[in-house]
Design a protein around this nucleic acid. Structure first.
Lengths: 207, 207
DNA sequence: ATTATCTATAGATCTATAGATAATGC
DNA sequence: ATTATCTATAGATCTATAGATAATGC
């Protein structure tokens, strides 16, 4: 990004707004705080974005766009066998959530409860649901050959999602329990990731 | 509860506050809305509870108290063998979350992020962590005899929690996907519950 | 005497804009 | 001419309380 854009007031406001909205949600966020954090006068925020709502929509859109490519490429590595591909997906998804720890709560609190935003989100990740359907066909075949336990792909994806967002959704409690020791935290996360992979693998592998 | 208490303004305010705070969170809740929903003047709310914060704490306390007995009795049926006891726990916990669908989000958004409240909550469920420790000893024994796969009880509990809160945390998206057909929703929930039990059972059972 | 209740309003906070002025690009 | 920026403030909303009055319990 060019130096001009990076330091433009409009961009500074967007960055500050992202922080504020992700940390505090729409209700908790203050346009005055955003302006202050961005180092601009409050009037400038309204000059560029007119309303708090419009500024918020910009952040929502940005966040959604960050999720789409992950979702559509999650089970993307067609060269791997089915089970390995799913194991990869769990791992990649876990890492993505850890790299974007505020996203799950933001989605849960600000996107899903709003009809319009929820449907916009669904339309954006529509491709993902087609992938799920295709994958189900593949699973049915492989399971018919007795190579994996039969399973519902959508349910399995929900399980992966649930398990992987846990550390970020419960981040405060986790911190509270492990203290602020970075080493301990990383050990915990590694354990958590390994456990999630094991859970999913045990579920689908042929007994 | 006596008719007097049930219809007392104080109690009406508490009930309305519970609805409002659970649905909208602290920031989104309005004391004026609460008073209106309770059918009392706004001044009465402040007369009984002084501040929004104090009213909120009352609701927080109540909600915590609802969770404590569940947690401490989750793995309580000592007469069952280990694996069955855990299966029971998954089932009971799932049903509890479904019966209290707003609780997980409330805990995640209003309790855990607040240092004081989070520690208060931890102190209230301290007994639960002792149960986890005891259970770990039992697991180590049974696993040493080769009757179950070795596993970490705390990690497993986290997995159960993650999997079971999914439908309520994603409730809006689930509704959006299954429509408002009650039959379809119940089928989904039954599927989800069976899948969670299967996931946990497969994880701990000896291969 | 104390508790409960209401009306009216203070006081704080927050979003948003008006209006003036400076900077920028044809 | 248009775009960017600031100061000042309007206007809306929300929490909280003052002060008067009615109801209740010794």
């Amino acid at each position: 990004m060019s130096e001009q854009i990076a330091q433009s007031k409009e961009y500074l406001i967007l960055e500050a707004a992202e922080q504020e909205f992700l940390k505090k949600g729409y209700d908790g966020a203050r346009t005055t705080s955003i302006a202050k954090a961005a180092g601009v006068t409050h009037a400038m925020l309204h000059y560029y974005f007119r309303t708090k709502e419009q500024l918020f929509e910009r952040i929502i859109d940005k966040k959604m766009e960050e999720i789409v490519p992950l979702m559509t490429h999650l089970f993307g590595n067609g060269s791997l066998p089915l089970v390995k591909r799913i194991e990869e997906a769990v791992s990649i998804h876990f890492d993505f959530v850890m790299a974007n720890p505020d996203l799950p709560k933001f989605l849960i609190n600000e996107v899903l409860p709003n009809r319009e935003r929820c449907e916009l989100f669904r339309s954006k990740i529509e491709g993902f649901f087609h992938i799920i359907t295709d994958l189900q066909g593949e699973v049915d075949e492989v399971a018919a050959r007795g190579e994996v336990e039969q399973f519902n792909v959508l349910l399995l994806f929900q399980s992966i999602l649930s398990l992987n967002i846990f550390p970020s959704v419960m981040a405060n409690m986790v911190e509270n329990m492990v203290g602020d020791n970075k080493q301990v935290l990383e050990t915990f996360l590694a354990q958590r990731k390994a456990e999630n992979i094991k859970l999913i693998m045990q579920r689908i592998k042929k007994i």
